[in-house]
Design a protein around this nucleic acid. Structure first.
Length: 583
DNA sequence: GTTCAAGGCCAT
DNA sequence: ATGGCCTTGAAC
């Protein structure tokens, strides 16, 4: 089940690859040696994070991996999502449009965009080491890398970094530089001056995107002005007008999963952790990414369902470039909130089992997580690898799925071994089914524009990255639509996929079988009672399961081969699932 | 020739 | 050590 240990060890180097300039395409082809000191590559695996006083100048590989760990641990948060502990200080201000709107000029990127440094919030002076930062953070980053500085945090490795306090803790400042995406490999080992590096085209594209976004905003503002009358928006107090002063305040709610790919050798496998194999302990989300992310505390029996804290801001409303999540209620499908004409049957006709199933669905959370991840992953990034991003989203969905399962009736009573086997067998089917559900019942679009302007193909999530499966996917969706496939059907089918008594090696097959049959019975009664006009709805739905399975299996193959060719992130739950099935 | 993101310099 | 300003030089 666990990934091979050798994978774990290669992982360290793999994980460092973005920062290791020894690859063939180092900037300007000049990098001849890693700027990192030795301990960078050989972390003390046995005592990770043991002390913040530990002298560690350059970020430890493990601190770079914290995202993964946080991500794992979020499954175990008990209603106290502390992701807000990651304070990116991320003011991404675009005040340019205000000027341009007033003057009617089309701004250029230099005058039009006034962004704040993602590290400290100071004024940006240009692109430095991969992204727009201020002059001081540029210099700080350069000095740190060039001189192989070793910093220590005297506090909790979570110091707030802003313009006035950035000098206080270089350790945390450098951590933040890395978090926001400053690139080590852009610092030249040979100190050659001048010229351009491989990031040049990226900066150019980023500039073009920003310009385009500004123009779109300006257009929108002009349209709005036209419809509201000229004075309308200028009379608003600062910050209240939709366009006069556009602030895109970003709060990272889902940790970046860019380092989702790694964990120390000694750590349990993602799925084992996710399932709570670790002494049934609750793993608390790290309050910030500087700390041991997988803190195992000895709290037993605490609630483990994940509830977004109120501090988790949704996808920025001001962000006009990204499709907003649909207005979903916290629990999107409550039978009692039935509206006339809705396809959801009245609660009186629904068995308590199904009612409970449906009420446990939280689609708003699903979409928040999705858009939150897309947001955090593209934060101040000129361009991201869309396939890699898709894998990260799938991985996150997988974590959510494990979390859902482990809190679900029938499943939660099983031993972890059985749970693993069931999940290994059904995860991809369930991912596909989830996507069908999000698309059918929550109008999930097939595409969204990321914060950096790139288009992200949401449908590819449902296709597990295989575009050619779109027809098959649409065909299945159409058939389900004909059957008036509703939310109750969805969740029951999901349980049937999960509680598959035919999975090999299940020790407590009887319990799985009982659960399966109870859900089957409930679904059968439900379809007969609520959809008597649809002949054989139950059977027809069941007949579609092999089709979903075949689609998912093709997606799995594709992902597996991408992984084997080195194109997919490693050491993710997703990849572990792919490997598990092939063992 | 111009641009602009690298590295360097030096007052603080 | 910091950070504002200067110099450099490949890409355009």
């Amino acid at each position: 089940m666990l990934l091979d240990m050798e994978n774990h060890s290669t992982l360290l180097s793999l994980n460092m690859s973005p920062f290791n300039a020894n690859s063939g395409d180092s900037p300007a082809g000049t990098q001849s040696s890693s700027p990192m000191p030795q301990q960078y590559g050989s972390p003390p695996l046995s005592t990770p994070y043991s002390s913040c006083q530990q002298s560690m100048g350059m970020p430890h590989p493990q601190t770079m991996m914290m995202s993964h760990n946080i991500d794992t641990s979020y499954l175990f948060s008990s209603g106290n999502n502390s992701m807000s502990g990651i304070d990116m200080g991320a003011n991404y201000q675009m005040s340019g449009p205000a000027t341009s709107i007033n003057t009617g000029d089309i701004p250029d990127t230099k005058d039009g965009i006034e962004e704040l440094c993602p590290v400290c919030g100071d004024k940006v002076s240009g692109y430095h080491y991969g992204l727009l930062t201020c002059e001081s953070c540029k210099g700080f980053f350069k000095r740190t890398v060039q001189n192989k500085k070793v910093y220590t945090c005297v506090a909790e490795r979570s110091c707030h970094i802003d313009k006035t306090q950035r000098k206080r803790c270089p350790f945390c400042r450098f951590q933040k530089c890395l978090e926001v995406g400053m690139k080590l490999e852009a610092v030249r080992a040979d100190r050659m001056r001048g010229g351009r590096n491989k990031f040049g085209p990226m900066y150019k594209r980023d500039r073009a995107r920003k310009l385009q976004m500004m123009r779109q905003r300006q257009l929108a503002a002009q349209t709005l002005r036209g419809s509201l009358g000229d004075g309308a928006m200028y009379n608003s107090p600062p910050g209240t007008s939709p366009f006069a002063n556009i602030h895109i305040k970003q709060e990272i709610q889902i940790p970046q999963v860019s380092s989702l790919t790694s964990s120390p050798d000694s750590s349990p496998s993602p799925i084992a952790v996710a399932l709570g194999q670790v002494n049934s302990a609750i793993v608390q989300p790290a309050s910030n990414n500087q700390q041991p992310a997988l803190q195992i505390v000895g709290v037993q029996g605490a609630p483990t369902s994940m509830v977004m804290g109120p501090e988790n801001k949704l996808w920025g409303q001001a962000n006009s470039t990204t499709t907003s999540p649909h207005s979903l209620s916290p629990k999107a499908f409550q039978f009692d909130t039935l509206v006339p004409g809705s396809s959801v049957p009245p609660s009186s006709k629904v068995s308590p089992l199904i009612r409970d199933f449906v009420q446990a669905i939280d689609d708003r959370e699903w979409q928040n997580s999705l858009y939150g991840l897309l947001q955090s992953q593209t934060y101040n990034q000129c361009e991201v690898d869309l396939f890699e991003l898709m894998c990260k989203v799938l991985d996150q969905n997988l974590f959510s799925q494990v979390d859902w399962a482990r809190n679900s009736i029938f499943f939660k009573d099983l031993k972890v071994d059985d749970q693993m086997k069931l999940l290994q067998h059904s995860w991809s089917d369930m991912l596909v089914l989830d996507h069908i559900h999000q698309r059918m019942h929550n109008n999930l679009p097939d595409e969204t524009t990321l914060h950096n302007g790139q288009k992200f193909d949401l449908l590819s999530l449902g296709l597990l990255g295989v575009p050619s499966l779109a027809d098959h996917f649409n065909d299945i969706t159409a058939k389900l639509q004909e059957l008036k496939f509703d939310v109750s059907d969805y969740i029951c089918i999901k349980f049937l996929l999960l509680l598959n008594p035919d999975v090999r090696g299940i020790t407590n097959r009887k319990h799985v079988q009982e659960g399966f049959e109870q859900v089957q019975q409930a679904l059968l009664e439900y379809t007969m009672t609520c959809y008597p006009q649809i002949q054989e709805k139950f059977n027809k739905m069941q007949q579609l399961l092999p089709e979903i399975h075949s689609l998912a299996a093709r997606g799995e193959d594709h992902l597996y081969h991408k992984h084997c060719s080195g194109s997919a992130p490693t050491q993710t739950l997703l990849m572990e699932m792919l490997h598990a099935k092939r063992k």
